[in-house]
Amino acid sequence: MPSDLTPFDRAPSTAAGERLVVTLFAGMAEIVGARHVEIEWQGGTVADLRRDMVANRPAIGPLLARSAVAVAGRYAADDRPIAAGAEVAIIPPVSGG
């Protein structure tokens, strides 16, 4: 991860393996009440991550369903595997401009 990211983008450090830190933005961060969530992670795909997240946080379901997932700085399809410790972000529908 580049060293000059803003504090906003700097995820908490994680122990190798087992955990995934997911960065949240905008309305998603507001619903959860946090910029990052930590998830126990035994490996799996983007689709697995979506299921894990919504199982413990039903309130995010509708927005998560309309959100993209970025893994290692790239938008990732639902079948993309995620390694523990990967940089993951939830990207709700965008509204820049």
Binding site: F25, A26, G27, E30, L63, R66, A70, A89, I91, P92, P93, V94, S95, G96, G97
Partner: peptide, 22 residues
């Protein structure tokens, strides 16, 4: 506006804040 991960939050007159997710 359609693709780049940037978001706006509206600050209303009544003090309300609303994230815009089209």
């Amino acid at each position: 506006k359609a693709e780049v991960p940037i978001w706006k939050c509206e600050q209303g007159e009544d003090g309300g804040r609303t994230w815009v997710h089209p």
